[in-house]
């Protein structure tokens, strides 16, 4: 809980700064908050999946490319082919799940390293996305027949964007899964010490694979949200390096790349922090070219602070 508290304090401080420094306190304006929640929703959903994978001691670098592939395929099915939206959406979700399962297979059965497997995915799926679309941007502009679903994903309920509602639902499910179910306990065990977990009778390969499958599913949900949000998918640029936002949110939120650590609340806070930072860069008139530099610095400081606290703990214990 300490880690979550730390990042929560950081969040509050940032919000206070944002409110105080932004012109006319526009940080807390209705429009800005709505936009912020929308972004946090879209990024948060797949970040939770990324957190799950990181807890197993793995990583998935292919998320952004998978979203691009899913986006162009979705565009082609809806616009070019004119397929009914339920089928198109379902197929696009299945595609992401299948790719996640494939990652899981290579990592747990063939015993390849997650970094390598998904790095290849990052290149491969982006290439496939550009090829199948002839490198043409796929739009949802002249939406016919699926206007309803597009409006649903872009819409709001009780003044809060659908994306954020979806995040809340996903987070609640993930919280139960990770912190209350035996699956969650097995996942932490497999991530912390796979051998010890296996020697306790846990089917670690299945557990680890399912983390990649869940990430595939959540990537699909985020992917649909992004596709309708941008309203067009450019195969070479869509969702570029989004996987790193997921990794950053998870790590900021207390996940360790060594595996076995992390919490749903932490990852959500991490996703909030990243989006607030970006938002503040815009609002405070910081040159947008500094965007990444600010994010990198804050992540580094966050992890550094955590490390310093950790290094101090043993001494405190010994003195007690």
């Amino acid at each position: 809980m300490k880690k979550e508290l730390g990042i929560f304090v950081l969040l509050v401080v940032l919000c206070a700064l944002g409110w105080a420094l932004s012109p006319e306190h526009s940080f807390l304006s209705q429009a800005n908050v709505y936009n912020l929640l929308y972004q946090v929703g879209m990024f948060g959903i797949f970040s939770l999946g990324m957190g799950l994978v990181i807890i197993t001691g793995g990583i998935d670098l292919s998320v952004g490319s998978v979203m691009a592939l899913q986006g162009v395929v979705l565009g082609m099915m809806l616009n070019d082919k004119g397929w009914p939206w339920p089928i198109a959406v379902a197929l696009s979700i299945l595609l992401c799940i299948a790719l996640g399962a494939f990652n899981g297979f290579l990592i747990t059965r063939v015993k390849m390293q997650p970094f390598i497997v998904t790095l290849c995915g990052l290149l491969f799926y982006r290439g496939v996305a550009r090829f199948v679309s002839n490198d043409e941007t796929k739009g949802f502009g002249e939406a016919t027949g699926f206007l309803g679903v597009a409006n649903f994903f872009k819409g709001k309920f009780l003044g809060v964007p659908t994306a954020f509602w979806l995040l809340i639902i996903v987070a609640a499910l993930m919280w139960v899964l990770l912190h209350r179910s035996i699956f969650g306990r097995y996942l932490y065990a497999a991530g912390r010490n796979e051998d010890a977990a296996r020697y306790s009778g846990i089917g670690t390969r299945g557990i680890i694979s399912s983390a990649y499958i869940v990430l595939g599913f959540l990537t699909a949900i985020s992917g649909i949200l992004f596709a309708f949000y941008t309203n067009s998918v450019s195969p070479s640029g869509h969702a570029n390096s989004y996987e790193l936002y997921g990794v950053a949110a998870a790590v900021l939120g207390g996940c360790s790349l060594r595996g076995g650590e992390g919490s749903v609340l932490g990852i959500i806070f991490g996703a909030f922090l990243l989006q607030i930072l970006q938002n503040l860069v815009n609002l405070l008139g910081i040159p947008s070219s500094l965007n990444f530099a600010v994010m990198g610095a804050v992540i580094l400081l966050g992890v550094l602070a955590d490390q310093l606290i950790k290094n101090r703990t043993p001494r405190v214990k010994a003195a007690a």
Partner: peptide, 20 residues
């Protein structure tokens, strides 16, 4: 290496095989 999750509590280690 294979008997225990060293970072885990005694409770979590003991219950692991019996969780299901």
């Amino acid at each position: 290496k294979t008997g225990l999750l060293l970072d885990w509590s005694i409770r979590d280690n003991i219950s692991l095989p019996a969780l299901r």
